[in-house]
């Protein structure tokens, strides 16, 4: 179905991204030595890719040590940002187990479903997280610059909402069908407006004229958007 040449190119691009990522990560740990890249990379033909990145001047080699050229830096940054935001999205919103995180995040990164605009919206949606689930820094994007002025992330789990605040439920992420059924029978569905009364000893929310107590475990799964006049 897909044009052979194009898909081969894409494959090659992915391999380049992969190596750039490895270099980035080695640099985070100290320095990116060419030998370490060879050891760390899973690419069977890493030598070939290294030649490409050097010849395309994405990377500059100096005494066996690799550093990025300005446009190499930019490309690597974008790969890392995409990857780590994907990890964050999967772990927080879809609650994918850590073991599987890596695989899925890589797939998302490679299929390039995450265009620049989409990546920025995910970043905004997650509240411009500074780190990935493993604690590594996520490079900031355009959206994050705007964010520093606006301050508040758009959608947060109920656990992050301030007491007394009004919010609209955006979505509920739960693995359990029965949980969704139960919450919806009580009127907790996307679109409902709630007010958070307290967080301890249990969460207490008001929805319409109903007051509901919730366990923290459930509150974590209810994602809300804070309303302007709280």
């Amino acid at each position: 179905m897909m044009d052979y040449k194009r898909s081969r190119d894409q494959f090659e691009e992915d391999r380049i991204d992969e190596v750039l990522e490895t270099i980035w990560m080695l640099r985070e740990e100290g320095e990116a030595r060419k030998d370490d890249v060879r050891k760390r990379s899973e690419d069977p033909n890493v030598e070939q890719v290294l030649t490409i990145v050097e010849s395309e001047q994405l990377v500059i080699t100096d005494k066996g040590c690799l550093s990025f050229s300005p446009h190499g830096e930019k490309r690597a940054e974008s790969v890392i940002r995409r990857h780590r935001l994907a990890e964050r999205l999967l772990s927080e919103v879809f609650e994918i187990e850590e073991k599987q995180l890596e695989d899925h995040a890589c797939e998302l990164e490679h299929t390039h479903v995450l265009s620049e605009v989409v990546v920025d919206s995910i970043c905004t949606f997650l509240g411009h997280p500074p780190t990935c689930p493993h604690g590594k820094a996520i490079p900031g994007g355009e959206c994050c610059k705007k964010f520093s002025n606006e301050l508040k992330p758009l959608v947060v789990p109920l656990t992050e909402l301030h007491i007394g605040g009004d919010a609209r439920i955006v979505f509920i992420s739960s693995k359990y069908h029965a949980r969704l059924d139960r919450l919806s029978s009580l009127g907790i569905v996307p679109g409902s407006i709630i007010r958070l009364h307290q967080k301890q000893p249990t969460y207490l929310i008001k929805i319409g004229e109903t007051e509901l107590a919730l366990d923290r475990e459930l509150a974590k799964e209810i994602f809300v958007k804070k309303m302007q006049h709280g």
Partner: peptide, 8 residues
């Protein structure tokens, strides 16, 4: 089960 409880 989950703790979701109506407070009258």
């Amino acid at each position: 089960s989950d703790f979701v409880f109506d407070i009258p």
